[in-house]
């Protein structure tokens, strides 16, 4: 038995040696990007495309690792628990603020060092079914204000969806009744089946239904127009205040990661964001290229949170 154990030990050491010769140059082994939602959605798709572009720049494989659960908190925790060696990145978006707003976690944007923001998803549109017969946004808002709670806004409870509903009612004077219908797929189903009246949605997720005319994009929930989606006008064109629920795509890393490594990663991200194939992908999906790095990106994300989400915090908590 003893002999056996020593044989095993020797074998393990031998295998260990093969992997020791690294650590002088970053990156020298595969990098993981934690995607804090499950595989298959638009966030996951963006992550995988970014991974491909980063791979070309860094010369090592960049692998997407899905860690789902806890409204992106499980993934963020895993990134904070990982070695601060720059080999574990995390991506997130506006969703990262919600658990903190609700007080269910201490983790926030400032818990990480920001690498950068390579793209902005300015494609969130307010959608109604064509059979509902709303002429335009103004018509919808007026009908809703005339008969409070008669028009249902479907979304996911305890998520940015709900904050968006609060923001619209407050800024536009509408009186939508919020109803939980579930995630993106469920929202599309509910709208198709005419079970709910309006939803907010990323444009590319229901492209077919916009093409057939079944879905009607009433307005773009952003601060700037998206020239790739000409049929979705800003709320300001109807004389309302713009309610911005665009989504930035943020890449961060454990806060104890050395600055030299953060610099290398930020450089790589800047190059990856310019990769022609990555840009083509963005265009195809109506996404806006961006290239904000480190402190600039962190400040942008923080300001975005303060301007578009934090101001509705009290109403949001009260609605729970």
């Amino acid at each position: 038995m003893k002999k056996l154990i020593s044989v095993l030990l020797v074998l393990c050491m031998f295998l260990g040696l093969a992997n020791v010769a690294l650590a002088d140059k970053f990156p020298s082994k595969p990098i993981q990007i934690i995607c804090p939602v499950k595989a298959g959605g638009d966030t996951d798709r963006n992550t995988r495309q970014l991974a491909l572009a980063l791979e070309k720049v860094l010369g090592v494989s960049v692998v997407t690792v899905n860690v789902n659960g806890g409204a992106t908190v499980m993934g963020m925790e895993q990134a904070l628990d990982a070695e601060p060696d720059g080999y574990t990145l995390i991506i997130n978006g506006t969703d990262m603020f919600v658990p903190n707003m609700m007080g269910t976690t201490d983790i926030n944007l400032s818990s990480f060092k920001t690498i950068g923001i390579p793209l902005i998803d300015n494609t969130t549109v307010l959608v109604a079914h064509k059979d509902s017969g709303y002429a335009d946004l103004k018509d919808l808002v007026e009908k809703s204000a005339a008969q409070p709670d008669s028009i249902e806004y479907g979304g996911k409870i305890g998520a940015t969806n709900q904050i968006c509903g609060i923001a619209m009612n407050k800024e536009w004077g509408s009186a939508f009744r919020f109803q939980d219908v579930g995630n993106n797929a469920a929202k599309i189903t509910a709208l198709l089946g005419r079970q709910t009246d309006v939803i907010n949605l990323s444009y590319s997720l229901a492209l077919d239904y916009f093409k057939t005319g079944e879905f009607q994009a009433l307005c773009l929930l952003g601060s700037e127009a998206n020239e790739l989606i000409p049929d979705a006008k800003l709320a300001s064109e109807f004389g309302y205040k713009n309610v911005d629920f665009s989504k930035f795509f943020w890449v961060g890393v454990n806060p104890d990661t050395p600055d030299e490594i953060v610099d290398i990663l930020a450089d790589a991200l800047a190059k990856a964001a310019q990769d022609p194939e990555f840009l083509a992908y963005l265009k195809e999906n109506f996404l806006t290229p961006a290239c904000m790095l480190k402190e600039e990106a962190q400040a942008y994300a923080q300001k975005f949170y303060e301007d578009t989400m934090e101001i509705y915090k009290d109403e949001f908590i009260a609605a729970q």
Partner: peptide, 11 residues
């Protein structure tokens, strides 16, 4: 498959 199992002492 590019799935990294925990490498531990060999990493």
């Amino acid at each position: 498959f590019q799935i990294f199992l925990p490498a531990g002492i060999l990493g």
